[in-house]
Structures are given as C-alpha cells and as structure tokens.
Simulated assay, not measured.
Amino acid sequence: MLIMIPSFIYIFFIFIGTWISISSVSMFGMWLGLEFNLMAFLPMIINLENNKKSSEAAIKYFLIQAIASLMVLMSFLIYFFLSNFFIFSLPNLILTISLSMKLGMAPFYLWFPEVMEGLNWINALILLTWQKISPLVILSLFFNFKLLIFLSLLSALVGAIMGLNQTSLRKIMTFSSIAHLGWMTSIISFDSNLWLLYFMVYSFTSFIMVLAFIMFNINYFSQIAMMKSTKKKMIIFINMLSLGGIPPLLGFFPKLMAFSILKSSIPILMLLITSSLITLYFYMRICFSTFTLYNQTKLWNYKEIHKKKITSLSILSFMTLVGMIPMSVWFF
C-alpha cells in the first residue's frame, strides 16, 4: 500500500497542473500548470525494476519539455514587455513551435516514440491523452495560423507514413497519436472548439486499446498473431479500426465532424484524408495478419484473464461499434 501512495500523489499533481493551465486567466498561470504536469509526470516514468529504458525516457522527456517550457515563457514575456519592438505575430509563432514540441508534432516528434518505448502502458496512456490537454487548450487560444496548418498537415502525413513498418504496439500508438494531432490542430486552426469532442473520442478509443494490451499482456504485433482466442483478436481488431476512423465505428465520427469544419478548404481536407487512408492501411494489415497467420511456436507467453474482464472489455468495444449512431444524431 505504501508503494502506491507516491503514484497517487503524482497523479493528483498532474490533475492539478492541468486544471491550473486550463482555468488560469493569466499566461503565467498557464506556464505554471505546464511545469506542474512536467515535474509530476517525471517520477512516474522512472521504473528501473521492470523497464531498463525508463531512466533514458525520463531524461529525454525532461530535456524536450524543459526546452519547450522555456520557449513558452519567452513568448509570454515578449507579449508583455517587448510587444512594441516586435511584430505581434512573433510571440504566437514561438508559442506554436514550443507547444508543438510539447505535443510531439512533426517535425518535433523524434523524442516521442523513444520516450514511449520506456514507459509502461499506464504511463503511455497518460502521455497519449491527459498530457496533451494543457498544450492543446493553450494552443487553441494562441497560435500562428499558417504555421499551425503546416505542422498539422506534416504531422498527419508523418504519423501515417512512419507507422507503416512498425512492429512495436507502443510505436504504432505513438504514430497514430501524431496523425490524430494533425486532425485536432487542423480543427483548432479554423477557430473551432470541436477539437475537444475529437480529443474525447480519441482518448476513449486509446483507453480501450491500452486496456486490451494490459489485459492480454502484449507489446508487439507478433504476440497478437499468436493468440488462440478469436474473441480477443476481434476486440483488438474492432478498436484498431475505430482508432483508424473507419465507418461506421465510433472513431469515424470525429473525422466526419472535421469534414464539416474543413470543407471550405479542400486541399487541406484531401491531405488529411490521404493520411487517414495510409493509417487505415497499416491497421488493416495488422488486423488481417492476426486472423490469417498463426505461429504454433510460442515466442512470448500471454496471460489468460478472467472471463469477467473479457466481458467488460467486450462491452467497451461494443460502445465503439455502435457509438457512432447517437453521436451523429446529436451532432447533426
């Protein structure tokens, strides 16, 4: 029990840091919330007993986030003290770059997959979802339109292409996150608050995926192909396709919503759709391979889990299957 207390404290401060950032009325408060998040998440990363890469991941995460936080503070200082000497768009330019670094958007994404490889699945889920809330909220308030559009399209394409030849599920989730960031920041650049709905659906789908990986104790694509249970494979299959955004699954709803927002800019929408098709390709490749290939030799052991846990995971997967219908009715 004593071992769990520090983790609870760190999660509490991560929550407080995010709350400070999104509710602050001052730029200093936003920066302070980002620092709370950084300093609370670092101790959670370090887990030398189970993962030897965790210390390396913590150092890389700290260095990148510290540099980005310094740039955020610099842009805020320019807003306050040097706005008469600089072009007003300069602070927005610096802030867009720094927050893109914090989010792991292209071309500042190189730290992201390396850090993910050093995390357990719980910390990976926090990095993929909760840690993105504060930077995205600040980015929705201060951004340079042309730069953000460029970074969003680059992220969507890089996330899709770099995920093609990955076998590690953590890296697949990482590049999927980068591609989804491209969609979310594209919605933000058109001054729409609907990116929050996109983020909620993405977080829910990622949560089910990570929960399945934890329950089935799998980390690589080969382990999925070895699984004997068709039901387990179907759970991963449905949620992967939902994360890729194939209709009529829940993951298609935020993309349908993005279509209605970005329909005024056809070139941007076409590039995003192209990246989404590439993402769907490597998801479909993984899914079809799991059903058509089966290796009788066990290279890894996967743990058998209780039927009640399988049932709860099946219910969550069913929500991604039918969730598109009520959300579409609500939106339209």
Rank of each mutant, 00 (worst) to 15 (best):
M226K: 10
M184N: 02
L147Q: 06
A124G: 15
I20R: 00
N84V: 05
L256D: 11
S186K: 10
P6I: 02
L280R: 06
F81Y: 12
I138P: 08
W195G: 01
G159H: 09
S75F: 01
L272G: 01
W300V: 02
F85G: 12
A58C: 08
W183G: 04
M173D: 06
M240I: 00
K52M: 09
L93H: 04
T205F: 04
N51S: 07
I218F: 04
L103Y: 04
M327D: 05
S140Q: 03
M257D: 08
F86W: 11
I246E: 07
Y10I: 04
C287E: 06
P6Q: 04
I188T: 08
F12H: 02
Y302P: 07
S98F: 01
K307T: 11
L139R: 05
K132P: 11
T129G: 12
E35D: 10
L243F: 12
K171L: 09
F199Y: 13
I218P: 04
E117P: 02
T185F: 06
S192R: 05
E114V: 15
I5N: 08
N51V: 00
K60E: 13
L211W: 07
V115C: 12
K52N: 11
N47S: 11
T185C: 11
K171A: 05
V210N: 04
T297G: 03
M116S: 15
S276Q: 09
F86C: 02
Y302V: 13
D191M: 07
I305C: 10
S186C: 08
I97C: 11
K52D: 10
L99R: 00
Y202M: 08
I126D: 02
W130K: 05
S229E: 08
Y283V: 02
L73E: 02
A68N: 02
I11H: 05
N92M: 09
Y294M: 13
M74F: 13
L141E: 13
I149V: 15
T279I: 07
L48W: 09
L194A: 12
